[in-house]
């Protein structure tokens, strides 16, 4: 267990576009205790995705220290960072991002290809993950044969199958109808309560945010705790 799972210190993220500097995150510091279900809210363009991507190790800050799961990310090489992600991060995308030519089971199996698990162990893990999201009977379906809500549940299964330290989700319900969104949020709640997973979810939707234990607002590059 890593506690806190995430520590950000004096994070600065600046984009250079057409000769002008756009600073997205300004001197941002905060930490996330293990086992937290955190929702990050904020207006469009406020830097929510940027912040999430820094924690996911798929983006680097302009300056500042990012420590996730006990690892100082800015010290890792590209290759080590990829291996680190495989071990510690489960990422859920807004548009599911399933691989169209792979079945549900194969999509879920992808992260396990980066582990030392045997073929049969992988199959077991995949079945467990898909049953957990209620799709045990859709193993051999291709993404185009699934509804949006089902696709996102496969996406969730893929994020948890390798038992990562933390689950990061960027607007996971953004493309879903109310009912499917509720299913996903319920699953997040269970993962957090029953398995103790640390979850960070970016969302626009206040009803989604309510399902989290903690809500933080990102405004003009600064995180605010609600009163």
């Amino acid at each position: 267990m890593y506690d806190p799972v995430v520590t950000l210190q004096r994070i600065l993220k600046v984009y250079f576009r057409a000769g002008t500097e756009v600073s997205v995150l300004r001197d941002l510091s905060f930490s996330i205790p293990a086992g937290t279900f955190l929702a990050i809210m904020g207006p469009s363009g406020s830097g929510k995705s940027t912040l999430l991507n820094l924690m996911a190790g798929i983006d680097r800050p302009t300056s500042g220290v990012v420590v996730v799961a006990g690892t100082r990310l800015h010290e890792l090489s590209e290759g080590d960072m990829a291996r680190w992600r495989a071990r510690h991060i489960g990422y859920v995308f807004q548009s599911y991002n399933l691989i169209p030519v792979l079945t549900a089971a194969e999509n879920v199996e992808l992260p396990l290809l980066l582990t030392h698990l045997s073929r049969s162990e992988r199959t077991d893990h995949v079945k467990t993950a898909l049953r957990l999201v209620g799709l045990g009977d859709r193993m051999d379906h291709y993404p185009r044969q699934l509804s949006g809500g089902q696709e996102q549940r496969v996406g969730l299964a893929r994020a948890i199958v390798s038992d990562p330290t933390m689950i990061l989700a960027d607007e996971p319900t953004g493309n879903l109808d109310r009912e499917s969104a509720e299913d996903i949020l319920t699953l997040f709640g269970r993962l957090n309560r029953e398995l103790g997973k640390t979850i960070v979810m970016v969302t626009h939707d206040p009803r989604a945010a309510e399902r989290a234990q903690l809500i933080r607002h990102l405004e003009k590059g600064v995180l605010e705790t609600p009163p």
Binding site: I58, A82, R85, A86, R87
Partner: peptide, 15 residues
């Protein structure tokens, strides 16, 4: 392209 980004996010290396 998006698929490549996804695979990389999952932990697949550039190689």
């Amino acid at each position: 392209t998006t698929e490549i980004g996804t695979l990389r996010t999952l932990g697949f290396t550039r190689l």
